[in-house]
């Protein structure tokens, strides 16, 4: 961590009279890593949104089988060099089925980002609601909700998610179900505890006391006076939740209990990739790379968001980073 980073962060970024949101963007912009990550995420979102257009451009779709493009005599290895890469199939075709890999990859981005974002919304709504209720409610409500949150924090995510996915009837739309299960099982409880602690602090603030004295109801106080104060920690937490949710969705699909075929998913593609890595290495490398880049970009962006929202935490960690100051 060089002096340059420190120098960029301190002056200018916190000019007086600039609104909180503007300050946030200014601070985020000064971090190069966060900026690169944000661009990568924007690109991914764009790919996910325009998946039908992109595949139309290629002239393919993610579900059509192309038996003529795989060699059934050799167990379904793609015909042609490099796993069947051609002008028609930009990234080759899937072994055995001959489905277009490019189309499956970009549609996979839809599933990955869509499920992760939906799960995050579930976690945010649940976490904020439970946290606010615990922070504002009486002692009994608080005790009960905190206990329940404690249990959910300790819950083994993967096992419970697997179990829930097993018992819900298969007629339920699968991506929605996966998003719901991931959202309900993980993340929200930690957020609820965070929101509760923050609410307890905010409750004592003057502006909240003033609102109460003016006869405002609890719901109105929560919405108008507390939620704005909760925005920063909640946004920070959400930024950490999204990449985690992406990993979990990929893991569940990898295990074969996530989204069901023919819906494409990166995790699902990796399930059988180890069989084909010699004949069609991109069948392994593409979904693995996509997953890695997505999670990495979102994690770096999350880090950037955190430091931009709470510069104190960042500078706290950087105190004493001068070169071995203690030796003298």
């Amino acid at each position: 961590m060089s002096e340059a980073v420190l120098a960029v962060e301190t002056p200018g970024a916190d000019a007086p009279g600039v609104s909180g949101a503007r300050q946030f963007w200014r601070r985020l912009r000064t971090r190069r890593a966060a900026l690169v990550a944000a661009s990568a995420v924007a690109l991914l979102v764009l790919v996910a949104l325009t998946a039908p257009l992109l595949t139309a451009l290629e002239g393919q779709d993610p579900t059509t089988y192309h038996p003529s493009l795989v060699d059934s005599a050799r167990g379904g290895v793609p015909v042609g060099p490099l796993g069947g890469i051609s002008a028609d199939h930009w990234l080759g075709v899937e072994p055995q089925t001959g489905r277009d890999l490019f189309a499956r990859l970009v549609y996979g981005a839809r599933v990955s980002l869509g499920v992760a974002l939906a799960a995050t919304v579930v976690q945010l709504v649940l976490g904020v609601a439970v946290g606010l209720a615990a922070g504002l409610g009486n002692r009994w409500i608080d005790q009960l909700l905190t206990r329940v949150a404690d249990i959910f924090v300790a819950m083994p995510l993967m096992i419970v998610a697997l179990a829930l996915l097993a018992v819900v009837p298969t007629s339920f739309p699968r991506p929605v179900l996966v998003a719901l299960v991931v959202g309900l099982v993980s993340g929200w409880a930690t957020l609820a505890k965070l929101v509760r602690a923050q609410t307890l602090t905010l409750k004592e603030a003057d502006h909240v006391a003033a609102a109460r004295l003016s006869g405002w109801g609890t719901v109105r106080i929560a919405r108008r006076e507390l939620l704005p104060g909760l925005a920063a920690p909640v946004i920070t937490f959400a930024a950490i939740l999204v990449p985690t949710n992406i990993s979990v969705e990929a893991a569940l699909s990898f295990l074969g209990v996530g989204v069901r075929p023919p819906t494409p998913s990166w995790g699902q593609m990796l399930t059988s990739a180890n069989v084909w890595y010699q004949a069609a290495p991109q069948y392994l490398l593409l979904p693995a790379g996509a997953l890695f880049v997505t999670v990495l970009a979102l994690t770096v962006l999350g880090d950037g968001v955190r430091t931009a929202l709470d510069p104190r935490a960042a500078s706290r960690l950087r105190v004493g980073t001068g070169r071995k100051g203690g030796r003298s």
Binding site: S2, A251, L270, L284, A288
Partner: peptide
């Protein structure tokens, strides 16, 4: 404050972003 730290931080970030089934799969292959 040195290069080693930045390198380690980067590697750690990469490790956190890779699911175990991807690392395991690549290692196994």
């Amino acid at each position: 404050g040195r290069l080693t730290e930045r390198l380690l931080t980067t590697v750690t970030l990469a490790g956190m972003s890779t699911p175990v089934f991807v690392i395991g799969l690549v290692l196994m292959i």
